[in-house]
Structures are given as C-alpha cells and as structure tokens.
Amino acid sequence: MGLLSNYRTNYLSIGWQLAPFRSIPGHGLGSADQFHTLEFSLRYHLSDRFKLLAYQPYRINRRMNNDQRVQQLKGISDTRIVAAYTLIKDASLGAVNVFWETGAGVKLPVGAYNARIHDADLPENFNIGNGSWAYLFQNNLVLTYRQLGLVVNGAYQHQRPSRSDYQFGHQWTGQLLLFAEARLGNQMQVVPNAGLTLEKITSDYHPNGQSVAGTGGRGIFVSSGINFKAGSWIIGAAAALPVNQSYSKDEVEARPRLTSQILFTF
C-alpha cells in the first residue's frame, strides 16, 4: 500500500509495476523474465471507519531465452477485494498522530490459468492467474509528527489449491516507509519517501504433496520515491533495489523494480 495508507479519501487509481528476474549464471537456461502489472484500484468509504478496496490487475509476463526466443503471456489477472476497518483514527500519542487500520479479503480466480503450462517450457508462476482462491489479510499503521511520517504495512496472502490441485506458495510482505511533506506554493504538495520492503514466498506443492523445485524465496529491498499532489490528483513513482535475496533456491535473482501511479481522490 505504501503512501496510500496516509491518504484517507476515496480514490480511483491506475498503477504500473515492473518486477524483473534473471537466471544466475550456471543455473537454469539463462532466461530473463519481466513481470509487468497494470493495476486499476478503487477505495470507497462506506462509513467513517469502514471502507472497501478493489484491485484489478492486467499482467504481461515476458521471458527472453538465451537463444533470443521470446515467450509472452498477457491478460486480466485475479481480482482482489478487501474490507478494511479503522481501529485508531488520528489519535494523539504525545506530539505524534496515530492512524491504524486492518483489513481482510479474498482473491478471486479471474485470470487465465493453464495447468499444463510446463508443456510450453514455462514455470507455473508464468500463468496470468493462479486458478485458485486466496485469503488476504493486511495491517496499515501511520505515525506522523508535523510534516514527517512513518508508514508500517504488513500483508499476508494464503493460497488455496488451484483447480488442478496445484498449491502455490503463501506470501508475506512488510514495509517501513519514511516520508516528508512539503508545499510548493498553494496548490501543490511534494512527498519524498524512502524505506525498506521485505517479502517471503513459500514453496509450491504438486498435487501429490511434494514440493516443487525452484519455487519460493525471500527478498529485502531498499526503496526511494516521490509523490506530487495537486488538488484531487496524486502522481507518484518509486524504485526498489534488492539488497539481500534468495529466490528459487538461488537459481534466479531479482533485479531493481519500478512502480508508478496516478490517483484521483474524491
């Protein structure tokens, strides 16, 4: 969620993320993967403390093999719907303002899923959708002091087996994000930010209960970004650099990630 936790209004958003990986020399077939995600999202307050969030991604998964052969899959991915409740709304802790919300939801198996994707020499995670339901849990804590703030986010996605009884790994993510707010004239606000992101994915499992080789992993990323707010519009961009990682039993490595987003608040 990042800095979105600090914006308390309804919003419509479109965002883009690039998450590239490449094979470590001496492992695999020497491929380089790019996972592009174009995501449309909506947050709407049902009451002072209850809100609904909906996310609809469109994915483009692209692989460049060492023989320059390109394989690509694209399409609408799995929909996520989350209901969130504000536990603490702008309470004072001395000079520090505290905001805390928690949420739970589901991931719907909307995206295309091919149980025989290995026949095309592609891994299971190259599917546009997981072909399975998942349970979602998240917590967002925002501490602010004057023009400075700290965002602490945590999320967990518990996967159910796919239609072919394939079990994708469960996912944990956590984030610490420091930000500062500064005004540029009367109409614009600039918010630089920097932080740390952690992620962990457990191994996948075959229908027979055996773990899938080369799946799962963990990573720690340092990030830096900036947001611009003008009236009802917010534009932001960020980059994340891996500083410690182990993916697919150290057969692949994550590369720097890029994100950008445009929001309309109402």
Results as ranks from 00 to 15, higher is better:
3 L>V: 00
7 Y>L: 11
9 T>Y: 03
11 Y>Q: 10
24 I>L: 08
28 G>A: 09
33 D>A: 01
33 D>E: 01
37 T>Y: 07
39 E>Y: 03
40 F>R: 15
45 H>F: 08
50 F>V: 10
52 L>M: 10
52 L>F: 07
57 P>Q: 05
57 P>M: 07
59 R>Y: 13
60 I>M: 13
61 N>G: 08
61 N>W: 03
67 D>R: 10
68 Q>S: 14
69 R>W: 08
71 Q>A: 15
75 G>C: 01
81 I>P: 00
82 V>K: 02
94 G>S: 11
98 V>L: 11
98 V>N: 04
98 V>D: 01
100 W>L: 14
100 W>D: 01
101 E>W: 06
103 G>A: 09
107 K>G: 08
110 V>G: 03
113 Y>H: 05
119 D>W: 01
122 L>K: 15
128 I>W: 12
130 N>F: 03
147 Q>S: 04
150 L>N: 10
151 V>A: 10
154 G>R: 12
156 Y>G: 00
162 S>T: 03
163 R>Q: 03
164 S>T: 12
164 S>C: 04
166 Y>L: 01
168 F>N: 04
172 W>F: 11
173 T>C: 05
179 F>H: 09
182 A>R: 14
183 R>K: 14
187 Q>I: 02
187 Q>V: 00
187 Q>K: 01
191 V>P: 01
192 P>C: 09
194 A>I: 09
197 T>R: 15
197 T>P: 00
206 H>T: 03
206 H>G: 05
209 G>P: 00
210 Q>F: 14
212 V>T: 13
212 V>Y: 14
213 A>V: 09
218 R>N: 08
218 R>C: 05
218 R>P: 00
220 I>F: 06
222 V>I: 12
222 V>L: 13
222 V>G: 02
224 S>Q: 13
227 N>I: 05
227 N>Q: 12
228 F>N: 02
232 S>D: 01
233 W>H: 06
235 I>D: 09
238 A>V: 06
238 A>M: 08
242 P>M: 06
246 S>Y: 11
250 D>H: 14
253 E>W: 09
258 L>R: 05
258 L>V: 13
262 I>Y: 06
264 F>V: 03
265 T>L: 15
266 F>N: 02
